[in-house]
Protein backbone atom coordinates (compact mmCIF):
# COMPACT_ATOMS: atom_id res chain seq x y z
CA UNK A 1 0.00 0.00 0.00
CA UNK A 2 2.90 2.28 0.65
CA UNK A 3 3.83 2.21 -3.03
CA UNK A 4 1.14 4.64 -3.84
CA UNK A 5 2.47 7.28 -1.53
CA UNK A 6 6.10 6.78 -2.39
CA UNK A 7 5.59 7.22 -6.10
CA UNK A 8 3.31 10.24 -5.91
CA UNK A 9 4.68 13.70 -6.14
CA UNK A 10 3.73 16.17 -3.44
CA UNK A 11 2.37 13.49 -1.11
CA UNK A 12 0.85 14.42 2.17
CA UNK A 13 1.45 12.46 5.33
CA UNK A 14 -2.30 12.11 5.91
CA UNK A 15 -2.64 9.85 2.86
CA UNK A 16 -1.65 6.75 4.79
CA UNK A 17 -4.37 7.43 7.30
CA UNK A 18 -6.86 7.94 4.49
CA UNK A 19 -5.89 4.62 2.96
CA UNK A 20 -6.39 2.89 6.28
CA UNK A 21 -9.82 4.41 6.74
CA UNK A 22 -10.83 3.61 3.18
CA UNK A 23 -9.67 0.03 3.50
CA UNK A 24 -11.50 -0.35 6.80
CA UNK A 25 -14.69 0.81 5.11
CA UNK A 26 -14.10 -1.47 2.15
CA UNK A 27 -13.52 -4.36 4.50
CA UNK A 28 -17.12 -4.02 5.65
CA UNK A 29 -18.52 -3.11 2.25
CA UNK A 30 -16.89 -6.06 0.54
CA UNK A 31 -17.83 -8.53 3.26
CA UNK A 32 -20.98 -9.70 1.45
CA UNK A 33 -18.96 -10.32 -1.70
CA UNK A 34 -16.37 -12.26 0.25
CA UNK A 35 -19.06 -14.27 2.04
CA UNK A 36 -20.73 -15.09 -1.24
CA UNK A 37 -17.44 -16.32 -2.67
CA UNK A 38 -16.36 -18.45 0.27
CA UNK A 39 -19.81 -19.83 1.10
CA UNK A 40 -20.45 -20.89 -2.46
CA UNK A 41 -18.09 -23.84 -2.13
CA UNK A 42 -19.21 -24.97 1.33
CA UNK A 43 -21.76 -27.49 2.48
CA UNK A 44 -24.23 -26.44 5.12
CA UNK A 45 -22.32 -28.41 7.74
CA UNK A 46 -18.98 -26.84 6.97
CA UNK A 47 -20.61 -23.43 6.84
CA UNK A 48 -22.17 -23.94 10.26
CA UNK A 49 -19.00 -25.13 11.90
CA UNK A 50 -16.94 -22.40 10.28
CA UNK A 51 -19.02 -19.55 8.98
CA UNK A 52 -16.37 -16.90 8.40
CA UNK A 53 -13.21 -18.46 7.02
CA UNK A 54 -12.84 -20.12 3.62
CA UNK A 55 -12.84 -23.90 3.60
CA UNK A 56 -9.62 -25.68 2.58
CA UNK A 57 -9.63 -26.11 -1.22
CA UNK A 58 -9.75 -29.87 -0.89
CA UNK A 59 -13.23 -29.64 0.67
CA UNK A 60 -14.68 -27.38 -1.96
CA UNK A 61 -18.07 -28.48 -3.12
CA UNK A 62 -18.09 -27.87 -6.83
CA UNK A 63 -21.42 -29.66 -6.95
CA UNK A 64 -22.97 -26.48 -5.55
CA UNK A 65 -22.19 -24.83 -8.84
CA UNK A 66 -23.53 -27.60 -10.99
CA UNK A 67 -26.70 -27.50 -8.90
CA UNK A 68 -26.93 -23.75 -9.18
CA UNK A 69 -26.29 -23.85 -12.90
CA UNK A 70 -28.93 -26.53 -13.35
CA UNK A 71 -31.42 -24.37 -11.48
CA UNK A 72 -30.86 -20.99 -13.04
CA UNK A 73 -28.93 -21.86 -16.19
CA UNK A 74 -32.04 -22.20 -18.36
CA UNK A 75 -33.08 -18.68 -17.44
CA UNK A 76 -29.86 -16.92 -18.44
CA UNK A 77 -30.81 -16.49 -22.12
CA UNK A 78 -34.13 -14.89 -21.19
CA UNK A 79 -32.46 -12.60 -18.71
CA UNK A 80 -29.78 -11.46 -21.14
CA UNK A 81 -32.43 -10.76 -23.75
CA UNK A 82 -34.71 -8.83 -21.43
CA UNK A 83 -31.99 -6.92 -19.60
CA UNK A 84 -29.98 -5.92 -22.67
CA UNK A 85 -32.89 -4.91 -24.83
CA UNK A 86 -34.64 -3.26 -21.92
CA UNK A 87 -31.62 -1.25 -20.82
CA UNK A 88 -30.67 -0.17 -24.32
CA UNK A 89 -34.18 0.93 -25.26
CA UNK A 90 -34.73 2.50 -21.89
CA UNK A 91 -31.56 4.58 -22.10
CA UNK A 92 -32.18 5.63 -25.69
CA UNK A 93 -35.68 6.88 -24.93
CA UNK A 94 -34.59 8.51 -21.70
CA UNK A 95 -31.72 10.36 -23.38
CA UNK A 96 -34.09 11.64 -26.07
CA UNK A 97 -36.59 12.83 -23.49
CA UNK A 98 -33.94 14.33 -21.22
CA UNK A 99 -32.46 16.15 -24.20
CA UNK A 100 -35.86 17.61 -24.90
CA UNK A 101 -36.32 18.79 -21.34
CA UNK A 102 -32.78 20.01 -20.78
CA UNK A 103 -32.21 21.86 -24.01
CA UNK A 104 -35.45 23.53 -24.81
CA UNK A 105 -38.29 25.06 -22.95
CA UNK A 106 -41.05 24.20 -25.33
CA UNK A 107 -44.60 25.20 -24.56
CA UNK A 108 -45.94 22.60 -22.21
CA UNK A 109 -42.59 21.11 -21.33
CA UNK A 110 -42.94 22.16 -17.70
CA UNK A 111 -46.21 20.33 -17.48
CA UNK A 112 -44.79 17.30 -19.20
CA UNK A 113 -41.81 17.23 -16.90
CA UNK A 114 -44.02 17.56 -13.86
CA UNK A 115 -46.00 14.62 -15.17
CA UNK A 116 -42.89 12.50 -15.15
CA UNK A 117 -41.85 13.70 -11.74
CA UNK A 118 -45.22 13.11 -10.12
CA UNK A 119 -44.86 9.51 -11.06
CA UNK A 120 -41.62 9.21 -9.16
CA UNK A 121 -43.46 10.31 -6.04
CA UNK A 122 -46.29 7.81 -6.33
CA UNK A 123 -46.09 4.91 -3.93
CA UNK A 124 -47.26 1.93 -5.93
CA UNK A 125 -48.31 -0.98 -3.78
CA UNK A 126 -51.79 -1.56 -5.12
CA UNK A 127 -50.81 -0.76 -8.71
CA UNK A 128 -49.84 -4.31 -9.48
CA UNK A 129 -53.41 -5.48 -10.02
CA UNK A 130 -54.33 -2.81 -12.60
CA UNK A 131 -50.98 -3.33 -14.31
CA UNK A 132 -51.66 -7.03 -14.53
CA UNK A 133 -55.12 -6.58 -16.00
CA UNK A 134 -53.68 -4.07 -18.45
CA UNK A 135 -51.03 -6.53 -19.62
CA UNK A 136 -53.71 -9.13 -19.94
CA UNK A 137 -55.88 -6.96 -22.13
CA UNK A 138 -52.87 -6.20 -24.32
CA UNK A 139 -52.18 -9.92 -24.69
CA UNK A 140 -48.75 -9.46 -23.23
CA UNK A 141 -49.06 -11.97 -20.41
CA UNK A 142 -46.62 -14.84 -20.59
CA UNK A 143 -44.35 -12.98 -23.03
CA UNK A 144 -40.90 -11.54 -22.54
CA UNK A 145 -42.14 -8.35 -24.18
CA UNK A 146 -44.18 -7.59 -21.10
CA UNK A 147 -41.02 -7.52 -18.99
CA UNK A 148 -39.16 -5.42 -21.53
CA UNK A 149 -41.88 -2.85 -22.07
CA UNK A 150 -42.85 -2.50 -18.43
CA UNK A 151 -39.15 -2.30 -17.61
CA UNK A 152 -38.61 0.50 -20.12
CA UNK A 153 -41.60 2.43 -18.85
CA UNK A 154 -40.56 1.92 -15.24
CA UNK A 155 -37.01 3.12 -15.81
CA UNK A 156 -37.94 6.30 -17.70
CA UNK A 157 -38.81 8.61 -14.85
CA UNK A 158 -35.68 8.20 -12.78
CA UNK A 159 -33.38 8.19 -15.79
CA UNK A 160 -34.94 11.32 -17.28
CA UNK A 161 -34.74 13.09 -13.95
CA UNK A 162 -31.06 12.33 -13.50
CA UNK A 163 -30.07 12.83 -17.13
CA UNK A 164 -31.83 16.15 -17.41
CA UNK A 165 -29.78 17.49 -14.50
CA UNK A 166 -26.58 16.37 -16.16
CA UNK A 167 -27.38 17.56 -19.65
CA UNK A 168 -28.22 20.98 -18.25
CA UNK A 169 -24.67 21.17 -16.88
CA UNK A 170 -23.14 20.74 -20.33
CA UNK A 171 -21.76 24.11 -21.50
CA UNK A 172 -24.12 25.74 -23.95
CA UNK A 173 -21.31 26.70 -26.35
CA UNK A 174 -20.86 23.08 -27.28
CA UNK A 175 -24.40 22.82 -28.53
CA UNK A 176 -24.17 26.16 -30.24
CA UNK A 177 -20.97 25.16 -31.98
CA UNK A 178 -22.62 21.97 -33.12
CA UNK A 179 -25.66 23.86 -34.35
CA UNK A 180 -23.48 26.22 -36.35
CA UNK A 181 -21.91 23.15 -37.96
CA UNK A 182 -25.42 22.21 -38.97
CA UNK A 183 -25.76 19.23 -36.66
CA UNK A 184 -29.21 17.74 -36.34
CA UNK A 185 -30.71 16.96 -32.94
CA UNK A 186 -29.64 13.35 -33.21
CA UNK A 187 -26.13 14.40 -34.18
CA UNK A 188 -26.00 16.75 -31.21
CA UNK A 189 -27.08 13.92 -28.96
CA UNK A 190 -24.52 11.60 -30.42
CA UNK A 191 -21.61 14.03 -30.49
CA UNK A 192 -22.31 16.22 -27.49
CA UNK A 193 -24.74 14.68 -25.05
CA UNK A 194 -23.52 11.10 -25.02
CA UNK A 195 -19.78 11.82 -24.69
CA UNK A 196 -20.36 14.58 -22.15
CA UNK A 197 -22.68 12.63 -19.92
CA UNK A 198 -21.04 9.26 -20.46
CA UNK A 199 -20.39 8.84 -16.74
CA UNK A 200 -23.98 9.14 -15.70
CA UNK A 201 -25.20 7.13 -18.66
CA UNK A 202 -22.80 4.40 -17.60
CA UNK A 203 -24.02 4.50 -14.02
CA UNK A 204 -27.64 4.45 -15.13
CA UNK A 205 -26.91 1.56 -17.46
CA UNK A 206 -25.39 -0.46 -14.64
CA UNK A 207 -28.29 0.34 -12.33
CA UNK A 208 -30.92 -0.49 -14.93
CA UNK A 209 -29.17 -3.66 -16.01
CA UNK A 210 -28.80 -4.80 -12.40
CA UNK A 211 -32.43 -4.04 -11.66
CA UNK A 212 -33.68 -6.04 -14.60
CA UNK A 213 -31.17 -8.77 -13.95
CA UNK A 214 -32.38 -9.45 -10.43
CA UNK A 215 -36.07 -8.55 -10.72
CA UNK A 216 -38.33 -11.37 -9.66
CA UNK A 217 -41.78 -10.01 -8.85
CA UNK A 218 -42.84 -9.04 -12.35
CA UNK A 219 -41.49 -12.15 -14.13
CA UNK A 220 -43.03 -14.37 -11.48
CA UNK A 221 -46.45 -12.83 -11.87
CA UNK A 222 -46.43 -12.25 -15.61
CA UNK A 223 -44.90 -15.55 -16.73
CA UNK A 224 -46.78 -18.78 -16.69
CA UNK A 225 -44.33 -20.95 -18.57
CA UNK A 226 -41.18 -21.97 -16.81
CA UNK A 227 -39.20 -21.57 -20.05
CA UNK A 228 -39.80 -17.84 -19.86
CA UNK A 229 -38.61 -17.20 -16.30
CA UNK A 230 -35.68 -14.92 -15.62
CA UNK A 231 -32.81 -15.33 -13.17
CA UNK A 232 -34.47 -13.47 -10.32
CA UNK A 233 -37.26 -16.02 -10.22
CA UNK A 234 -34.79 -18.89 -10.02
CA UNK A 235 -33.02 -17.18 -7.14
CA UNK A 236 -36.19 -16.50 -5.18
CA UNK A 237 -37.10 -20.18 -5.45
CA UNK A 238 -33.81 -21.16 -3.97
CA UNK A 239 -34.18 -18.60 -1.24
CA UNK A 240 -37.77 -19.63 -0.56
CA UNK A 241 -36.76 -23.10 0.56
CA UNK A 242 -37.37 -23.65 4.23
CA UNK A 243 -34.10 -25.33 5.05
CA UNK A 244 -31.63 -23.17 3.28
CA UNK A 245 -28.69 -24.75 1.49
CA UNK A 246 -26.48 -21.74 1.87
CA UNK A 247 -23.70 -23.12 -0.29
CA UNK A 248 -26.06 -23.73 -3.18
CA UNK A 249 -27.75 -20.39 -2.75
CA UNK A 250 -24.45 -18.53 -2.80
CA UNK A 251 -23.20 -20.55 -5.76
CA UNK A 252 -26.35 -19.68 -7.67
CA UNK A 253 -26.01 -16.03 -6.70
CA UNK A 254 -22.43 -16.09 -7.86
CA UNK A 255 -23.39 -17.67 -11.18
CA UNK A 256 -26.10 -15.08 -11.58
CA UNK A 257 -23.67 -12.23 -10.99
CA UNK A 258 -20.90 -13.77 -13.08
CA UNK A 259 -21.99 -12.22 -16.39
CA UNK A 260 -22.18 -8.89 -14.62
CA UNK A 261 -18.71 -9.30 -13.18
CA UNK A 262 -17.27 -10.27 -16.56
CA UNK A 263 -19.00 -7.39 -18.28
CA UNK A 264 -17.78 -5.06 -15.61
CA UNK A 265 -14.18 -6.30 -15.71
CA UNK A 266 -14.02 -5.48 -19.38
CA UNK A 267 -15.68 -2.12 -19.33
CA UNK A 268 -15.02 -0.74 -15.86
CA UNK A 269 -12.49 1.74 -17.08
CA UNK A 270 -15.10 3.22 -19.35
CA UNK A 271 -17.55 3.66 -16.55
CA UNK A 272 -15.11 4.72 -13.91
CA UNK A 273 -13.26 7.09 -16.18
CA UNK A 274 -16.57 8.48 -17.19
CA UNK A 275 -17.43 8.97 -13.58
CA UNK A 276 -14.20 10.82 -12.89
CA UNK A 277 -15.75 13.40 -15.12
CA UNK A 278 -12.58 14.12 -17.14
CA UNK A 279 -14.71 14.87 -20.16
CA UNK A 280 -16.56 17.68 -18.45
CA UNK A 281 -13.49 19.89 -18.47
CA UNK A 282 -13.51 20.36 -22.24
Amino acid sequence: MSHASTTSVGRKPSDTLSHIIIWAIFAIELLPFYMMLQMSVKTNTSFMTNPWLPAPPADWQWSNFSYGLGLIGPYIANTVFVATLGTAASLFLAICAAYFFARYRMPGSDILFAMFMFLMLMPGVANIVPLFTLLKSMNLLNTLWALIIVGIAGGQVFAIFVLKNFIEEIPKDLFEAAEIDGASHFQQMRNVVIPMSAPIIGTLAILMFLGKWNDFMLPLIVMRDKELFTLGVGLIYLNGEYVKQWGRIMAAFLIASMPLIIMFLFTMKLFVRGLSGGAVKG
Binding site: A77, V80, F81, T84, M263, L265, F266, T267, K269, L270
Partner: peptide, 18 residues
Amino acid sequence: ILNTIGFSLLGICFLIAT
Protein backbone atom coordinates in the same frame (compact mmCIF):
# COMPACT_ATOMS: atom_id res chain seq x y z
CA ILE B 1 -9.52 -3.51 -26.68
CA LEU B 2 -11.19 -4.52 -23.47
CA ASN B 3 -14.15 -2.29 -24.07
CA THR B 4 -14.54 -3.75 -27.50
CA ILE B 5 -14.31 -7.26 -26.09
CA GLY B 6 -16.76 -6.43 -23.31
CA PHE B 7 -19.38 -4.99 -25.57
CA SER B 8 -18.92 -7.62 -28.23
CA LEU B 9 -19.34 -10.27 -25.54
CA LEU B 10 -22.58 -8.64 -24.51
CA GLY B 11 -23.60 -8.40 -28.13
CA ILE B 12 -22.79 -12.02 -28.79
CA CYS B 13 -24.63 -13.13 -25.64
CA PHE B 14 -27.58 -11.05 -26.70
CA LEU B 15 -27.60 -12.54 -30.17
CA ILE B 16 -27.36 -16.07 -28.81
CA ALA B 17 -30.14 -15.34 -26.35
CA THR B 18 -32.30 -13.85 -29.08
